[in-house]
């Protein structure tokens, strides 16, 4: 499988700020790469370089095999870009916004109109086709913005924080749309501050912080990197709680918690679960639930960056 996007050693400075301090990444054709990082990490800057809006100070990148600096025009023919802030013309209607893009891409008037209608229907914006985009809700504006970047049926799509600031329902809709595009074979590079979003959508995740890549891998690989899992035991009988806490303490790698009648504790030993099952069995203790859970991406984030994951504050 080939790489649709490759970046090597990208450096971008703005005055004294180093927004990118040598970023490498690769996105395989037909997959979703999640660029995950807190506010100010350099996500937007990376997207702007790859989408030919910024010339990197150092390093180089290719998109669809074309150099983003020397062959910018060819790159622009391949990509769709949905920026961090919905970049629709607020004074034009939903339909006009899409027709404008279609016309600029060389579609005849009729085809541009047909394509606009098609996209408005697909993104459930038909009712708003003739309303000024400035009057759209946040979710509608995002959908229109995404639709605008799809007019030319790009094979490569950049989505910069596509769901920041959206309510949960709009966010789920956006996720479904992205999944649909991926099913059609579109390669997606999406940035996000939300770990669950990367977990939901991305085949591979690149975590960046202060303009540097701090980790790369699938969500499972990243979780495994912390080397920590959580064991959960729910006793069948409440009377057994103290006994079970004592047993869990034997395999735990940290403090044991027993609030709400459920015993949880971090474990690092791969054999911990088997060990625990034997002990419970020996003691004749029945349990209603026994599980070993991978760490959440939040925990991964904390261990990689030394900071807790942001609480979904829009950038």
């Amino acid at each position: 499988m080939t790489n649709a996007i490759v970046a090597e050693g990208l450096v971008q400075r703005f005055g004294d700020t180093t927004a990118l301090a040598g970023v490498d990444l690769a996105v395989r054709t037909g997959t979703v790469l999640g660029l995950l990082g807190p506010n100010g990490a350099g996500k937007t800057t990376a997207v702007r370089v790859l989408a030919t809006l910024l010339r990197p100070d150092q390093g180089h990148a290719t998109v669809g095999g074309y150099d983003v600096v020397r062959e910018a025009h060819q790159v622009r023919r391949l990509i769709g870009l949905t920026g961090q802030y919905a970049s629709v013309d607020e004074t034009l209607t939903g339909a006009e916004n899409l027709i404008l893009i279609g016309r600029l891409l060389g579609l005849p008037r009729r085809d541009a109109k047909a394509r606009a209608r098609e996209l408005l229907a697909e993104f459930r914006l038909d009712d708003a086709a003739d309303r000024a985009a400035g009057k759209f809700s946040g979710g509608m504006r995002r959908r229109l913005d995404l639709a605008a970047s799809l007019v030319g049926r790009p094979r490569l799509l950049f989505l910069d924080e596509p769901t920041t600031g959206l309510d949960p329902r709009s966010r789920n809709e956006m996720w479904d749309i992205v999944r649909g595009l991926v099913a059609d074979g579109v390669t997606v590079l999406l940035t996000t501050q939300y770990l669950d979003e990367a977990d939901q959508l991305a085949d591979e995740i690149v975590v960046i912080d202060h303009g540097r890549v701090v980790a790369t891998g699938t969500s499972d690989q990243l979780k495994a990197r912390t080397g920590r899992q959580t064991v959960t035991v729910r006793p069948s009988a409440e009377a057994d709680l103290d006994m079970i806490v004592a047993l869990v303490r034997l395999v735990a790698a940290g403090p044991v918690d027993a609030t709400g009648g459920v015993v949880t504790a971090p474990v690092t030993d791969p054999g911990a679960l088997a060990h625990l099952v034997r002990r419970l069995d020996d003691g004749g203790l029945a349990v209603a639930e026994l599980a070993l859970r991978s760490p959440s991406l939040d925990e991964v984030f904390l261990s990689l960056t030394g900071r807790p994951a942001p609480e979904g504050v829009p950038a």
Binding site: R48, A51, T52, L53, H73, R76, R77, I79, L81, G83, S87, I101, L104, L105, A148, S149
Partner: peptide, 8 residues
């Protein structure tokens, strides 16, 4: 930005 990302 949107306009600059188009092949125009």
């Amino acid at each position: 930005d949107r306009l600059r990302s188009l092949p125009i």
